[in-house]
Every structure is written in C-alpha cells, then in structure tokens.
Design a protein around this nucleic acid. Sequence first.
DNA 1: GTGCGCCCTATACTTTGGTATGGAAGATCG
DNA 2: CGATCTTCCATACCAAAGTATAGGGCGCAC
Lengths: 217, 217
Amino acid sequence: MKRPTPPAAAADVPTVFVVDDDEELRLALGNLFGSVGLEVKLFDSAASFLRGVPQDTPGCLVLDVRLPGVSGLEFQGQLARAHAQIPIIFMTGHGDIPMSVQAMKAGAIDFLAKPFRDQDMLDAVTLAIETDRTRRARTQASSDVRDRFETLSPREREVMTLVTRGLMNKQVAGDLGLSEITVKLYRGQAMRKMGAASLADLVRMASLLSLHGDPPK
Amino acid sequence: MKRPTPPAAAADVPTVFVVDDDEELRLALGNLFGSVGLEVKLFDSAASFLRGVPQDTPGCLVLDVRLPGVSGLEFQGQLARAHAQIPIIFMTGHGDIPMSVQAMKAGAIDFLAKPFRDQDMLDAVTLAIETDRTRRARTQASSDVRDRFETLSPREREVMTLVTRGLMNKQVAGDLGLSEITVKLYRGQAMRKMGAASLADLVRMASLLSLHGDPPK
DNA sequence: GTGCGCCCTATACTTTGGTATGGAAGATCG
DNA sequence: CGATCTTCCATACCAAAGTATAGGGCGCAC
C-alpha cells in the first residue's frame, strides 16, 4: 500500500508557506497572515522550502518570482512535474505581462505586483486555501477507492471492469473464458472488497477509477 | 424541447473571430489565420461581433482589450454571464499585469502584448480551438442525455433517480408508495427512453445529470 | 511439506430483475 | 365526448443475479 492509512493525521490547519529572499517582506507577510489566524512558515529560497516541507500539509504557497537559484516560475514547473499540487500565489517587483500569463496558465491562483494591498493578498490566500481544501477532499475520496481496488486480485479487477461496463455475467464469462458461476463469485468478492452496497455504487467507483475512459471531467 | 434536435447542423469548421478597432491589425490577422486555413471573421467592436454571430459556431475569439464601447475585459464578463463559453485570446497594446491576471483568472486562453509574434498567436488559437472542440463534445454528450431525460414522465424520473442510487425495486416501491411491479414497469420504460442498454449505462447517465450530487468533477 | 491465497468449477436454491398482457382511474385536449 | 397520456395494479413467467457449500489444481512462502 502507498498511503499508510493513518498518514500521521497531518495537522489539518491550513498553512501559508512564504518563499521570498527579502527578509523584511517575509516578516511583514508573516505578521499579516498571523493577524488573521493563519499558520505561517517562512523560507528564503525554494530549496529551503523543499527541505522544510516534506509532509503534505494543506495550505498554499506565496512565492516571489525572483529568487536565488531557480526562479519562481521554474519552481512552479518543478512542483507541477513532481505532482505537488499546492496552490501558488506569485509576487513580483519587476514582472511583465508574459511572466504573469505564463504563471496563470500554469495554474497559479494569483499574480500580484509589488507593492500590493494587504487585502488583495489575503483574498488570494483565502481562495487558494479553499481551492486546496476542495482538491484534497476530492483526491482523498478517489484514493480511498483506489486503495481498495488494489486489494482486488487480477481476476476480480477484470470482472469488475466488465461488469461495470454493463455486461451480463454470462457475457463476462464468455469474454474471459470462464463459467458464469465463477464470474458471480468474483463479482461478489469485488463488491465486498470495494465496499459497494450495490451495482450502482460499483459503477460510480469504476468511473472514479477511469476504468472505461475519462469522460467525467 | 429546447434544442430542435437537428440544430441546423452548424458548420463545424472552426472559425476565428477577431474583434479589434484597428483595421490594419484586423486585416493582418485575417491574413495570418487565412494563411493556415482557418475560417476568419473580422469585427470592429464587441457590438458588431454580437450582431454578426448569433449562431453557435465553434471556434475562438481574438479580442483587443481596448475597444470602443465596452472594454475587452467587460465584454469577457458579459459573455460569461450569458454562458457563452467561447475561448478568448486577448491582445493589448497598453496592458498591465493586473489586467492580464484578471483576464486569465476569468478563463482566457492567453493574453498577448502587442506586438506579438505571429507564431505565438497561432499557437494560442490552435489551443483555443482545441479547447472549444473538447468542451463542445462534452457539452453535447450531456445535453443529449438531458434531452432524453426530459421525455421521461415525473414518475419515471423518480424511479430512475432511486434505482441509479442503488436501491432495489422493492425499496424504491416503498419509498414512493408503489408496488414493486409498478416500479419495474417504470424502470423498464426509463431504460428504453434513455437508450440505456444496462443499469451501468443508466447510472452513468444519472451521474452526467447530477441526479445525486456533483462529485464527478 | 504444510499452509495460504488465487484460480476455477459444480450443484442447489433464493432473490431480483425484466417483460408481457390486461385492466382501471384520472387529467388534458381538441 | 372520445382520444391519449399518465398513473397504477395484478397475474404469469422467464432470465439474471446472488449466496452457500464443496470441491480440485497451482504457486509461493515459511
């Protein structure tokens, strides 16, 4: 199994991660977010952020575009490639339009030019955290199902796939070269292991797992 | 019924709609898009675009931010409110970062500062058209299902809802105060009218219709 | 080897699902 | 008023799904 079921029950209080090499601004942002009751962690570079945040804490990232080492935009790309889906809010002192557009295309929540108004930053962070919360809820729901699916034996998986496609037991049997009674057996086991109370449930799980195609977008 | 089933078979050749008050640029863009085999229509204002494009032609909108009358950004908002989901590519000569960010947040495909490279514009348009094509395919698939769902009688709809939720016929009967045989009757009729070959199909249609909740995002 | 899990089947039986046919009551519309 | 639609039920019957019990063969790990 991948996820150790109780993943250390990561503190689910949302945290704002600030990455900026300007200490003064860092502290100012720390105060700003602290003043509205948010948890904050400050970093002076992308590298130290990576070092300091191995766990999967919910929250968002407030990132300066110009950083020592990799730029903010490059860092965004790295995170994306690593499938780290933390919402990002950019700040910049010397940005231009193409830069902001690139960041937004890559999924940034916002892109603020310095100096920005405190309220704009707070609004962006609020939205980012809400976004992260929603995404996490969805992700976990589907990964629960995925975990259960992985406990199925190969045959059980095949049967589940065909059954949720709408085939009758005898058709599944034909396709897999089995007898109908065997299909019934695996079908029942799949239902039990997946925790599906009905075929309808199982079909929805199959959808979540994209067993047939991705249409549900 | 809403959609008259055969909706005049709208020409499905993608069209680039250009809205800019600078005639010189309009013509240049017309040539550019024409040279790669795209259909193009040119407009000098948002109003004339609205007048000239009542149908739902697939394609994308290349829009100047600064326009006579409403601004490009306002126009984007208007289209969104009117549920016109045509992908938009902005152009601007005097834009700034907040402007571009606002446009991107509102779903613009790209935001190009003038002067831009022809290739950048073509890339953006290609992506926009692909986006529109995908969205249309999805939309139509679900609206077909929706049309069929509307031909169901109220009872048939109720039965379909409960059945696809995973209830057994007898449970549905109990919930609705019917006899089981009646439920079977409506269930069968619903399947036929919806064109579902199996319960699994029906469940997927129910998902598309959000009969139980929106989870599938 | 012994145990265990997966794979597969069979017999036997119950419960659901699904269809067909027929009939009855109320609503709506031309 | 008759046509049509929706709603509802019954009887009858068959197909499919689901469960239980009992087996045998295979591969892997202890």
